[in-house]
Design a protein around this nucleic acid. Structure first.
Lengths: 192, 192
DNA sequence: TTACTTTCTTGTCCTAGTTCAATGCACAGC
DNA sequence: GCTGTGCATTGAACTAGGACAAGAAAGTAA
C-alpha cells in the first residue's frame, strides 16, 4: 500500500525504513469513487493527496462557467490546492476524481508534525514544488506560443496514457482550446 | 544593504540576528547594468537572485524567435531558473536586466551550505516556491480564459508600477498578446 | 541641432480558433 | 429490446487577435 509513495518521496532524499514507517503513519488511506469532489471552490483544502490508483482532475471555473483544467493527477502524482492548504483559506479550485481512486492524504496538522519529526521532508516537498513550478512555467510558455496542433502533439508525447483514460473534451480544456476544435485537429492528424 | 532581503525571508519563518548574519554572508552582491544577461538559453543557471533595486525580465524564445516573458522581477522579488539551478543542467530561459540593478545572489554551493547550516531556510524556500507555483497556476488560468482586455486590466491591478517602468511590448509579451493588439486595447480603454 | 533607434499607434487584411447547431455513436439503466 | 445521456464529429458563420506596413512619437547620442 505504501510502496509507491515511499518510492516517490525517496527520489531526491533517502530515508531509513524507520523514517518511512513514521511517514506512512501520518497518511490516511481512502477509496474515492468516480465523479466525487475532493475539493470545491469556496471550501478550504484540507489535504495533499497522493494518487495510488485512478485519475483526478483539478480545474478552475471562470466567470462564464467555463472549466479550465490545470492538472491531471494519475498514479504516482500529488494533487492539492497548495495556496488554500498552506494558508487554510478558501480555494478557487475544484478537484474531482475521473475514475475510482485510491489516495493517501496528508492533513495540514499531519504535515506539520511530519516536518517537525523528520525535517528532511521539508526538502522533499520543496523539491517537488520546484519541479511542479518549472513544469507549470513550461506549460504557460507552450500555451502562449504554440498552435493547437502543436499543443496536442506535445500533450500526446508527455502524457501518452491519459488520452486513453479521459474524455477528449477534458484534454481540450487542459490545452486551452475548445472541444470541437480539438476534434478538428485530430481529424486533420488522422488524414495525414 | 541586507535589510530588504532579511525582511523578505523573515515573512514566514523568524530568524535571529545571528542567523541572518550567516545568511547574508552567503550572498554575493552585484551591480548589473541595464540590458545585461544574467542567463541565456543553453547556459547553466548558477544563481538564485534577489532584486534589491531595478527590474529584470525572464523569458523564453520560441522556435520562431518570438519572446514570451514569464516574469518581471522588481525590488523584493527573486528570479532564477529553478530547474536549471537545482539540477545544474542547461536552461531554456533568458534572464535580462531592463534597468540598472542591484542584486544579491546565492550560488548552488552557497545555498546547500546555507541549508545545512540553518535548516529553517529549507522551509523559507519551500514556501516561496509554493506561492510562486500558486501564482503561476492562476496566471495559466487567466491566460487561457480571459480576453486580452481583461488580462491587461488584471495586470494593471496586480502590477501597477510596472507599466511605468518597462516598454509596452514587454507587457504584451507577458500577457501573451501582440504588441499591436495591446496598443489597440489601450486605445479602446482610453476612449471610454 | 540632427540623426538614429526604439517604441507606439493605426489601418487593412487575414486566419486560427470559437460558437452554435445538427448528427451520429456508444454506453448504461431499465 | 428501447431510451436517455454524455461524447465526438462535422459544417457554416463569426470574431478575437495576429501579421504586415507605414507613420508618428519619443528617447539617445553626437
Amino acid at each position: 500500500m505504501f510502496d509507491l509513495i515511499n518510492k516517490n518521496v525517496s527520489r531526491y532524499v533517502s530515508f531509513t525504513q524507520a523514517e518511512l514507517k513514521i511517514f506512512n503513519s501520518f497518511l490516511k488511506h481512502s477509496h474515492v469513487p468516480k465523479k466525487s469532489f475532493l475539493l470545491q471552490a469556496g471550501e478550504i483544502c484540507h489535504f495533499e493527496a497522493f494518487v495510488s490508483k485512478g485519475c483526478i482532475r483539478k480545474y478552475y471555473l471562470d466567470s462564464n462557467g467555463f472549466e479550465v483544467i490545470i492538472q491531471f493527477a494519475i498514479e504516482n502524482n500529488w494533487v492539492s490546492d497548495i495556496a488554500s492548504f498552506s494558508d487554510q483559506k478558501p480555494s478557487h479550485l475544484f478537484v474531482e476524481t475521473l475514475e475510482d481512486c485510491e489516495i493517501l492524504t496528508l492533513s495540514p496538522a499531519a504535515k506539520e508534525e511530519l516536518l517537525a519529526r523528520i525535517p528532511k521532508f521539508e526538502r522533499v516537498f520543496r523539491i517537488m514544488v520546484q519541479r511542479n513550478l518549472s513544469l507549470t512555467q513550461d506549460r504557460l510558455f507552450n500555451t502562449i506560443s504554440k498552435s493547437a496542433m502543436d499543443k496536442y502533439l506535445d500533450f500526446l508525447e508527455h502524457y501518452p496514457t491519459i488520452p486513453q483514460r479521459v474524455a477528449q473534451h477534458y484534454i481540450a480544456s487542459y490545452l486551452g482550446i475548445s472541444a470541437e476544435f480539438l476534434s478538428k485537429v485530430r481529424a486533420k492528424l488522422a488524414k495525414q
